[in-house]
Computed example of a mutant assay.
Amino acid sequence: MKLIYVADPMCSWCYGFSKEMAELMEMNPEISLEIVVGGLSAGSNKVLDDAGKRFRLMHWSKVEAISGLPFNREALMAREGFVYDSGPACRALVTAIKMNAGISILKIFRAIQHGFYVDGKDVTSPSELVKILSNTFALEGYPVNGDLILTMFNSEEIKLETENHFKTVKHTFGISSFPALLLEDHGEIKTISAGYMAANMLQEIMNKISNQNDSVLCQKHS
């Protein structure tokens, strides 16, 4: 049994949902988690104007009210010439996954989100992303040279793997909005949530699916 979290580091609802995911994983330490990035605005070259910033702040306010998580509005409004391209942040997470350092990938994902939404870092910048990954690895007792991270980040292998994530989300899962949480059990994938949901509600749905599966197994062996 495995949970599949489909998300984007620069999706504000994913930022709120990641807190719920952390709580859910604490409730289910025996279940593995895979994160697949969706590329919400990957490849965008449009500069975010004031209207675009205010539009995003409207969503941020909704997420803040529901999740209780903080947002650094001032940093976004003050940033000039900012292109809301989530591609680099997605690629940074794929880099971390590929490094397979034995560190919770959700923790790394949340570090990228925290860097953007709380610390006001420009997570479209490879150098900022390398710092976030490097600092997170170090805090978890796995120091990694920043140059190594950057080399992997810029490699064709990681670029291709990131594109594969996007294709999987779009064509295999058929998902176009984030966050989404899927459960894979014996090769069958079921949707737990299509959108933000509290951890206790996610747990209830998982329990129902588990009970249904147990019932089916009992019927097969009766």
Rank of each mutant, 00 (worst) to 15 (best):
F166K: 02
L182Q: 03
T151H: 02
S67K: 01
H171I: 07
T191Y: 02
S210N: 14
F153G: 00
L76A: 11
L202A: 13
E161I: 08
P9H: 01
G174P: 02
Y142T: 13
S61T: 08
T172G: 00
I209L: 15
A138L: 14
L3A: 04
C218I: 07
P179G: 11
Q219A: 13
P88R: 13
A7E: 12
I103V: 15
A51N: 04
S193N: 05
A96C: 13
I209D: 06
M206P: 07
L183M: 13
V6N: 10
H165C: 07
L40F: 06
E26R: 12
V94G: 03
H165P: 02
H186S: 10
F173Q: 07
Y117I: 14
S61D: 12
G87Q: 14
K159C: 03
G146C: 02
F82T: 04
T168N: 05
A65T: 03
T168I: 01
L3I: 03
M1Y: 03
C14N: 10
E157C: 10
E74K: 15
G39Y: 05
L24T: 05
S67H: 06
P29W: 00
K121V: 00
S61L: 12
M197R: 13
K159W: 03
F55W: 02
L148V: 14
T191G: 09
M21A: 06
A89M: 13
E64G: 00
G174A: 05
L129C: 04
G39C: 06
I158N: 07
S127L: 01
E23Y: 10
S18T: 02
F166I: 04
D147F: 09
S125D: 15
A111C: 08
G120I: 09
G16W: 01
I103T: 08
A111F: 08
W13T: 11
N45M: 08
G87H: 12
Q219K: 10
L40G: 04
K121S: 08
L69D: 02
N28P: 02
A111P: 01
V63S: 01
M206N: 05
S61E: 14
H114F: 11
E156W: 09
V123E: 01
K159T: 08
I103R: 11
A78T: 11
K167P: 00
D119E: 15
P88Q: 06
L181W: 01
T151G: 00
K208W: 06
N28R: 10
M21S: 06
C90S: 15
K46D: 10
I209M: 15
H114E: 11
H59M: 06
C218W: 03
E20C: 00
L202T: 07
G43Q: 14
K220H: 12
E156P: 05
F109A: 10
S127T: 10
P126F: 09
T168E: 07
A199G: 13
V83S: 10
S44R: 07
E23S: 11
D185K: 14
